[in-house]
Amino acid sequence: MNSDLSPVRLLTTPQAAALMGLRPNTLEIWRVSGKGPAYRKLAGRAVRYVETEVIEWLAACRHRNTSEYALCGRAAAPQTEAAQ
């Protein structure tokens, strides 16, 4: 996340989808189901993605084998005290 005051590049749904090699409709479906990168809702309607957050999300989706697939695009499960 960009914690300083430097400008961020906001992407529309089609721009973010193009960056990820997806159709815009895929991101729309993911927003409803809670998958995909974080987004911002501006003025109640306009959806924007922060470019650096999309790139970070893509990096988190890197897999080495098929057993890792379930981890990408979903919020991390809350850790119990025993796991911490």
Rank of each mutant, 00 (worst) to 15 (best):
E56V: 03
L27V: 05
Y49Q: 06
T52W: 02
V32A: 15
P7N: 13
R64N: 14
E53P: 02
L58I: 05
L27P: 01
L10D: 07
T12P: 01
E56T: 05
T80L: 13
P24D: 07
A46Y: 00
Y49A: 01
W30F: 05
G21T: 12
L58K: 04
R48E: 05
S33Q: 14
K41S: 12
E68T: 15
A18W: 00
P37E: 09
D4G: 02
M1G: 15
V8G: 02
L11T: 01
N2V: 12
L10V: 02
R45N: 14
E56N: 12
M1R: 12
A60M: 00
T26K: 14
V47Y: 03
R48P: 06
V47F: 04
Q15M: 09
P7M: 11
A70E: 09
G36S: 08
A59D: 09
P7L: 09
G73N: 07
N2F: 08
W57L: 02
A77R: 11
L11V: 00
A59K: 15
G21N: 05
L5C: 06
G36Y: 03
A70T: 13
A38F: 00
M1D: 09
Q84M: 08
R48G: 03
T80D: 09
P7R: 11
S67D: 12
G34E: 05
H63Q: 13
Y39G: 04
A16V: 03
A18I: 08
L58F: 07
L10R: 02
N65Q: 14
Y39T: 04
A43N: 14
Q84A: 15
L71I: 11
R40E: 13
M1E: 09
V8M: 11
H63W: 06
Y39W: 13
A83F: 03
L42H: 12
M20Q: 12
R40M: 11
L19D: 10
Y49R: 06
S67Q: 11
A16R: 02
Q79L: 06
P7E: 15
T26F: 06
R62K: 14
S3Y: 11
N65G: 08
W30A: 01
R62D: 04
P24W: 02
L42V: 13
P78W: 00
K35F: 03
Y49N: 04
E68P: 00
I55G: 04
A17P: 01
R62S: 14
V47S: 07
Y39M: 00
H63D: 11
V50G: 01
C72K: 05
D4F: 00
A82L: 13
